[in-house]
Design a binder for these strands. Structure first.
Lengths: 121, 121
DNA sequence: ATAACACTTGAAGTGTACTTTAAGTCAAGT
DNA sequence: ACTTGACTTAAAGTACACTTCAAGTGTTAT
């Protein structure tokens, strides 16, 4: 797959894909005849994982650490698991914040609706 | 309440409090004899709301818009409600992303555990 | 009274995550 | 032959949300 195809498939700009590779989040991606990137299955899996983790604001630096460990093979299983578990904690905190904020907004919107119905009567 | 007390109460640095005020997210806060800030009840309510919204990454610019409308009085009720409703949509998207990521991490961690138990047998 | 400390201001600096630019290579279309 | 378009690189630029700095004023403790 070319960078353009990957870009379109995952909704990441070509620049972002090259940036992720340079930072070591993916790749290195194999280059074809014209020195152009040819993304392989494994690259795509990594990209999907990264996209998912970035959607919840896992920092680039942590993903980088994780991917470096991954590249180092099975001896790093424990460290990798630890990173994932930490990330899970972060997710639970975020879920909590979101639920609190949602509650608050729903109440506030309810109040606005009451204000309005008052006016119209 | 002094800026120091507010800072400690809400876990926001004094600089951040002044920054929020400068950006128009709160205040203007009344100044006492020594040109020092004296936070009032309303300021505290605003700070709490802002803290909650910032915890879920509502952008400063949107909060600013919202707070400006608020300061303009009841004629802006509809616009304010719209902002809150948009923010609610954003929250639901984030909740979705988080749940997906959580699922994925739980599965991945499970796999790591399986790898480990394989090794130990 | 003279440090030590808390505050004030505006402006410059920082970290994160991209994004854009500049300068170049390569292949296809007219 | 030549332009158009997609790609390559490294480096500089941008946006956001603070954070730190520099320079100054005022209050409190010894």
């Amino acid at each position: 797959m070319t960078i353009k195809e990957v870009s379109e498939k995952y909704g990441l700009s070509k620049d972002t894909l090259r940036y992720y590779e340079k930072e070591g989040l993916i790749g290195p991606v194999a280059k074809g005849k014209n020195n152009q990137r040819e993304y392989q299955e494994e690259n795509l899996n990594q990209i999907e994982f990264i996209k998912c983790m970035r959607s919840i604001n896992m920092p680039i630096a942590k993903l980088k650490t994780y991917m470096n460990l991954y590249a180092q093979g099975p001896s790093t299983l424990d460290s990798r698991k630890e990173i994932l578990e930490n990330q899970l904690d972060a997710i639970n905190i975020q879920l909590d914040d979101l639920k609190k904020a949602k509650e608050r907004l729903l109440k506030k919107i309810e109040l606005y609706n009451q204000e309005k119905s008052k006016k119209s009567h």
